[in-house]
Nucleic acid binder design. Structure first.
Length: 324
DNA sequence: AGACCAGACCGCCAAA
DNA sequence: ACTTTGGCGGTCTGGT
């Protein structure tokens, strides 16, 4: 089983600590078996102060990181608290073994402090982006996204984005369907991808009369057909310009980005669950052609549709293929 | 793999 | 006076 070790340091934020457990423990195979073994480790075993003014008892020390397939560094207050030489060595050792590492919120400061983000793209909570980039000049901080996937180093913004990132990782390992199911169990949305803006000006669940919800539903039902801005604008009974603006305000994306994201979900599920030829998948998902489908797979998942399908066939659930 | 071109995106301004 | 919308056009993107 894939071993996830959650690293909690002094001042750990309890909410963030719960996230990887909630998501990875709810990721179950078709037979209901857990797919991840999740444990928490600290700088040493025993009592650990949280940012909430109470302490927890951590069952493992840093040695546990040596057995990890994935390490999740959760946020602490203040950012980067609790990093010392031992943490440094443990994380750098894991990095040398190319262990996959995730950070949630200010967890990015821990990775940066260990030099693991040098020359890489990364993100953190919007409030701390400036500080992260000032303190670690060699890190390319992107303040505008929910999470960043830079090979085996994945960093996420505020807490909710940590959920998105963990779900994304589940989808890399085990496909869209299992990630969707885990999302449903945790009662969160599986449809937020990394590229979205951290700021969404309107509330996430909008009940305002000029919400585009109906238009999005309509688009989802016609996803297999070519959909232009004009089509969507007509459906929403507004101009193209207004449609684009509303999309930005409500969703933090543009119409085309959103469409492509939805199409990716359809395509992934079709590849996972059916034997439809690739060009049929391209048609059904609305990408229209195989080259376009391939282009989007390459860009968002770094794989090809065929490799993606292959990695979900047979016994070996293929991180190897996906993350190579 | 690269170039080309339609269409998407977005800043700006005027109108409602 | 202030907010929201739509149109124009320059630039960028992504599909072929």
């Amino acid at each position: 089983m894939h071993r996830v070790v959650v690293l909690a340091l002094h001042g750990v934020i309890p909410f963030h600590l719960a996230i990887p457990f909630q998501v990875f423990c709810n990721a179950r195979g078709a037979d209901g078996q857990p797919l991840y073994d999740v444990v928490v480790a600290g700088r040493r075993r025993g009592e650990l102060a949280t940012s909430g003014g109470f302490s927890i008892v951590v069952p493992h020390g840093l040695a546990r990181l040596e057995q990890a397939d994935t390490i999740v560094v959760v946020g602490s207050e203040p950012p980067g608290a609790g990093v010392d030489d031992r943490v440094h060595r443990a994380l750098r050792g894991a990095a040398r073994r190319r262990v996959r590492m995730l950070s949630i919120c200010t967890g990015a400061f821990v990775l940066a402090e260990c030099g693991l983000l040098d020359g890489r793209r990364a993100t953190t909570h919007w409030r701390y982006c400036e500080l992260l980039s000032e303190r670690y000049r060699r890190v390319a901080v992107d303040p505008a996204v929910l999470f960043v996937d830079d090979d085996e180093l994945l960093t996420s913004a505020g807490a909710a984005c940590g959920i998105d990132l963990c779900l994304y990782v589940v989808s890399l390992d085990h496909g869209a369907q299992i990630a969707n199911r885990a999302a449903r169990t945790t009662v969160s949305t599986p449809h937020r991808s990394g590229g979205q803006a951290q700021f969404i000006e309107r509330p996430l669940v909008s009940v305002e009369p000029h919400s585009l919800e109906a238009t999005r539903q309509w688009a989802l039902q016609h996803l297999g057909e070519p959909l232009s801005l004009d089509d969507l604008a007509r459906q929403a009974a507004v101009s193209r310009r207004t449609l684009v603006r509303r999309f930005a305000a409500e969703m933090g994306t543009t119409p085309l980005q959103w469409l492509n994201e939805q199409r990716m979900w359809v395509a992934r599920q079709l590849l996972e669950q059916t034997d439809l030829p690739i060009d049929h998948v391209a048609q059904h998902s609305g990408f229209g052609s195989t080259p376009t489908l391939r282009f989007h797979f390459r860009r968002t998942l770094g794989t090809s549709p065929k490799a993606y399908r292959d990695s979900f066939r047979g016994e070996s659930h293929g991180e190897s293929t996906l993350l190579a």
